[in-house]
Nucleic acid binder design. Sequence first.
DNA 1: TGGCACACGTTATAGCATAACGCAATTGAT
DNA 2: ATCAATTGCGTTATGCTATAACGTGTGCCA
Lengths: 142, 142
Amino acid sequence: MNAPIVNPALTKNQALVFDALNRAEGPMSAYTILDKLRDHGFRAPLQVYRALDKLTEFGMVHRLESLNAFVACAHRESECCGAGHGHGHGTVAFAICESCNQVLEFHDHAVDHLLNDWANGKGFKPSKTTIEIRGVCEKCAA
Amino acid sequence: MNAPIVNPALTKNQALVFDALNRAEGPMSAYTILDKLRDHGFRAPLQVYRALDKLTEFGMVHRLESLNAFVACAHRESECCGAGHGHGHGTVAFAICESCNQVLEFHDHAVDHLLNDWANGKGFKPSKTTIEIRGVCEKCAA
DNA sequence: TGGCACACGTTATAGCATAACGCAATTGAT
DNA sequence: ATCAATTGCGTTATGCTATAACGTGTGCCA
């Protein structure tokens, strides 16, 4: 059966981490999350990393490689192609403002296609694709 | 041995680091480079990082964000569009084999174009774009 | 009811990156 | 030539990011 994108009943720690990421309006490092959750009983990085691993696996959180940080997924449910699970199509891309730290999440089928075509041509089997644009957002550029 | 691919008159440390990266046939972390260069007098990470900063600035080395590692640029000089300096066009992309650690460097004008179009549409001003495909290369997939 | 899978907590350690100091060499305008 | 600015260099110390390895508790179900 096809996996429903439904919240797979998060554990307490997972819920706390996910919440922290949703409240923040920008990416957070694991250690920043840890600090925000000390009042809720968090004491060690692993508590955060373990939750982040699961949330990432569920497609509810993305890791920004160029920032070593994490954001809550911005696809408010079934945006279109089931981009939650990058299975070839559905790679998510990010535009990261270096001035205000806001992140725009998007995906672009045409780009996916081109990269997949390239991979096919080379016999390369992609498992995860990272696309991150660093720059300055419209507001900050003004 | 092989003639140095001299570009902008590297300093001794820069040349050593660049050489180390060229000899290696895959990405290396800064600390791995440090270890390889201890015999040449390197003692501290900063010596490596400073050289890497410059080499990256010169376009002779790329950083792989998803790996926290570095590779020598594979464009053997003026491949085409002046991809050395990512100024909108000329973004470099990487396919990273998680089995054998080899890296394929390429660039794709069409992808650049699409991402630039997206950015223009959003008023986003890109400064650096990261594209990294993790997966398994043809050889290893066999 | 015993085994399994999984989440959790804790301590310790590994791996990646930069701050801040001072010195030496180079350049280049006066 | 001389001074000032710039750049590279070396060192020590520190901070940030991530995982290893151990043990506990809980729910499931064969």
